[in-house]
Design a binder for these strands. Structure first.
Lengths: 218, 218
DNA sequence: CGTCTTTAGATCGGTTATGCGCTAATCGAG
DNA sequence: CTCGATTAGCGCATAACCGATCTAAAGACG
């Protein structure tokens, strides 16, 4: 940190930045995953002060990057590490948080279901289509996150890496259907995804029907 | 404003929000327009302290919405009103601003060339492809803004309303070419835009060639 | 006043994309 | 072991799309 190393910055009124009121800045993250039964779900944590559920979040610490604040909050509250959160939107309504003037930078993070380590007492997984109204703007955050994830999954095979490699095109399609929340045409999907896949040459055995080829993402 | 009306919020350490350091929050806006000669251009204003050029911005005032801060800064520095700014990204590198810990929320705003009232001494219009390196993250802000505007113009006719209605499809295509920065196929463009247009039944006269029908956006 | 140039808008033929169906390949049950 | 169920992957017919061409309608010019 090298704030005010030499001259302190003063504006046209001769005041420094510290003379102006500043908002608290929080990060709130919709952590999305797809469950083994093919449901797009979001991580909710128990909200302290007014009892209820919310998406995990924290206040930004001095000198901290937003993405690092997201990682810190998720490591603490949901035992998740190694994420690459993406910014979605800044919620800025002055009255949105009754604790004071708080801006919230909404984020999206994705995690494999198998890597989730949720403490059942303080966190749970909720089906995206069953989330009720949450406090603050947390319902809106989830909507932003789902829209962003769906946009990413529309044209590329599993961009978030939710599926362990190698996988069959059927497994990939089941995942994309869970994300999209709707049935996807078999051939159209195959043709759209093939350019982004590399065949391993291996076949999946032990399933019913003709063995499917195994692929990796390019 | 109703901060700390009754009970002051305290966290698990018994501290209030005010006990934690908070960042300054700024808004910076890439104001884009298309000049009469068909060039996509951005508004730059003179930077005070370290002399140079930057995109207009300001610090967020207490209780103010981000969009209102954008409007305030643009009304002051470029005489522009009636905008609907869109959030792009939060720039959060702790060292990005040597005046202190400053987060910047980048915005995009669009304005008709005829409505611009730039004070030549402090503001100028710069061709998007001729913008050099700017201080802070302002080059990145412009890149975000151009990408966002191009995405919006890819599928809908003049979503930002840069063209006065009614207009011909040729005028619309010239505008879209300026935004996209590349030549657009005549028939493909016409077919892509027609669903978003309504014919007025009027024809444009006084030009060479077969008179073109005049359209409005739906 | 007639011809040339310019531009709009419709039409047409070829290409690409889409969805259905067929066949191959495997598992499981009788 | 055989037959039926299931699933992968390819082929084919159709539909949608795209770009070039053609015609119409106006101004420019001699």
């Amino acid at each position: 940190m090298r704030y005010s190393l030499g001259v302190v910055y003063r504006d046209s009124s001769g005041r420094t930045l510290a003379d102006y009121p500043r908002p608290s800045v929080a990060v709130d993250t919709a952590v999305l995953t797809v469950t083994p039964d093919g449901v797009l779900a979001v991580v909710l944590v128990r909200s302290g002060d007014p009892a209820g559920w919310r998406v995990p979040g924290t206040f930004l610490h001095p000198g901290e990057r937003l993405a690092d604040a997201v990682r810190r909050s998720l490591a603490q509250k949901a035992g998740i590490t190694g994420l690459e959160p993406a910014q979605l939107h800044v919620f800025d309504a002055p009255e949105r948080d009754d604790r004071g003037w708080v801006l919230s930078v909404a984020h999206l993070a994705t995690v494999r279901y198998e890597e989730l380590r949720l403490d059942a007492g303080i966190a749970r997984l909720e089906d995206i289509s069953a989330v009720g109204e949450l406090r603050y703007d947390h319902s809106a955050i989830i909507e932003f996150a789902v829209a962003e994830l769906r946009a990413r999954y529309a044209s590329a095979p599993d961009p978030a890496g939710l599926l362990p490699e190698p996988f069959t095109i059927l497994e990939l399609r089941r995942l994309h259907e869970a994300v999209a929340g709707e049935w996807l045409q078999r051939d159209t999907f195959r043709r759209a995804m093939l350019p982004g896949l590399v065949a391993t040459g291996e076949l999946q055995r032990g399933q019913r029907g003709k063995p499917a080829e195994l692929f990796r993402r390019t």
